[in-house]
């Protein structure tokens, strides 16, 4: 184990109506201290109205090595986009 406190990933909601966005990480002994440290580290200039801290070890991520095979299934389904369809001249609001 690291000699440091565990690593936490920090997410900030910058204002009401927006989702939390990842801003960085920090070390803290527990969730409560992680929140307080995140407040001091990432919101010194009113950058947020809400914070999440998540143990970095709890995040499962897709692998960049599988990028192609993992995301390819979406590549040949252009019919998922509205621009795929022919709309006759003069038809509005479609």
């Amino acid at each position: 184990m690291s000699r440091d406190w565990p690593l936490w990933e920090v997410f900030v909601r910058s204002r009401r109506g927006l989702s939390h966005v990842h801003v960085g990480s920090l070390h803290a002994p527990d969730a409560e201290m992680a929140l307080r440290n995140a407040r001091d580290l990432y919101t010194r200039r009113q950058e947020g109205v809400s914070l999440w801290v998540v143990p970095a070890s709890a995040i499962a991520a897709s692998s960049p090595d599988e990028k192609d095979s993992f995301f390819d299934p979406a590549a040949d389904k252009v019919y998922r986009h509205p621009t795929f369809y022919d709309v006759p001249e003069g038809v509005d609001h479609l």
Binding site: S2, R3, D4, L7, G24, S25, L26, H27, L41
Partner: peptide, 14 residues
């Protein structure tokens, strides 16, 4: 911020 960025490369801040 910078120690956190360095740690993404697989090193420990300590």
């Amino acid at each position: 911020y910078l120690y956190a960025a360095a740690e993404t490369l697989g090193v420990d801040r300590a």
